[in-house]
Amino acid sequence: MNYLPIAQRFLVIASLALGISVAQAQTFPDRPISLIVPNPPGGLVDTSARLLSEPLSRVIGQPVIVDNKPGASGNTAYQYVAKAKPDGYTLLISYSGYHVGNPALMDKLPWDPIKDFSPIALLTVSTNVIAVHPSVPVNNLKEFIAYAKANPGKLNYASQGNGSVSHIGTEIFKQSTGIDMVHVPYKGSGPAVQDVLAGQVQVFITTPPSVMQHVQSGKLKGLAVTGKIRHPGMPNVPTTAEAGLPGFQLESWVALYAPAGTPAPVVAKLTESVKKSLALPEVKERSDAAGVELRYLTPTAMDALLKKELPYWNKAIKSANITLD
């Protein structure tokens, strides 16, 4: 008999909590939403954020602001969102290179890839492009591999930062081809591209938004794309399989996350609003022009993807002896 009042008390508390969550969802959002980007302007991650921000603002009825917070291999932004109030107003534009790469690269990560974040949706995916400066005397991937082997350590390659997909992917590329290049990390795609265009760094394996216009104009040579099919914006650039390296493929993704503990109704509203935003015809047109593939996934599917990729990238990073140094 003594337990009945306690049970009733728990029911009342649970009902109140549910009522608060429903009320939050009904009024959400009533002020601007911030999309925290772990990279500087330019490149796949920032492009994906800006593809989403304007249509999402129209769909959800409040300003959606892109806030670039680069630094510490993405950790500045990830830690900022992990510690933010879980109310749906501070969201993370997550990059696969950080979300699945950093846990394998860092012993004391200041955030947990699963426990600290609630998935909202997958936004975009992108193949990568093996691009080189015109001063490199090659015309295709086979010639490049032969040239790199004949000149070990003489070529420099750019990355978006230690632990990024461009860093990890290029190290795996080196392992798979037996070549030796020197890593030059940058704080995002923008500054990396500038030095590759200037010839200070000769090689960049990165996503199409960073280099597509330069490959199209001839300022950079596109040797191969790392997906299963050719990229529509660079139809003359073969896949790695077509270029003679079928075992090397590399894909990057960008997803939207909220801090863990964000009320389920708020997450559901954000998820549905993102789905509507990505389905707008003008967003598809803009993504095609930017060289980005829209690929929506639900929170459940995004959670499954992350849990599948974490052990895969951990194994790849460890086997290639990749570090943040």
Rank of each mutant, 00 (worst) to 15 (best):
S126R: 04
T127N: 08
T127S: 13
N128G: 08
N128W: 11
V129D: 11
V129P: 00
I130T: 11
I130K: 10
A131K: 06
A131R: 05
A131Y: 05
A131W: 07
A131I: 03
A131L: 05
V132K: 13
V132R: 12
H133K: 10
H133Q: 10
H133A: 07
H133R: 11
S135W: 05
S135R: 14
S135E: 12
V136P: 01
V136Q: 03
V136I: 12
P137V: 10
P137R: 09
P137K: 07
P137G: 05
P137W: 13
V138F: 14
N139A: 12
N139P: 01
N140F: 14
N140H: 11
N140S: 10
L141N: 06
K142T: 09
K142I: 06
K142S: 11
K142C: 01
E143K: 03
E143I: 07
F144C: 06
F144H: 03
F144Y: 14
I145W: 06
I145A: 04
A146R: 12
A146P: 00
A146E: 09
Y147E: 11
Y147H: 15
A148H: 02
A148C: 09
A148I: 06
K149T: 09
A150Q: 11
A150P: 01
N151D: 00
N151P: 00
P152L: 14
P152Q: 12
G153L: 08
G153V: 02
G153F: 10
G153I: 02
K154H: 10
K154F: 11
L155Y: 04
L155R: 02
L155F: 12
N156D: 12
N156Y: 13
N156T: 10
N156G: 10
Y157W: 12
Y157T: 01
Y157Q: 07
Y157G: 03
A158D: 00
A158E: 00
A158Q: 05
S159F: 02
S159W: 05
Q160N: 15
Q160M: 12
G161R: 13
G161K: 12
N162H: 15
N162I: 06
G163K: 04
G163M: 10
G163C: 07
G163L: 09
S164G: 05
S164P: 04
S164Y: 15
S164T: 14
V165L: 15
S166L: 05
S166Q: 03
H167T: 00
H167P: 03
I168H: 08
I168A: 10
I168T: 13
T170P: 00
T170G: 00
T170H: 10
T170Q: 13
E171L: 08
E171D: 02
E171S: 01
E171W: 04
E171N: 06
E171C: 00
I172L: 14
I172G: 00
F173V: 01
F173G: 03
F173R: 03
F173K: 06
K174D: 00
K174V: 04
K174R: 13
K174P: 00
Q175N: 14
S176C: 08
T177H: 12
T177I: 11
G178H: 03
G178R: 01
I179E: 04
I179T: 11
I179L: 08
I179D: 05
I179W: 02
D180V: 07
D180F: 08
D180A: 07
D180L: 03
D180W: 01
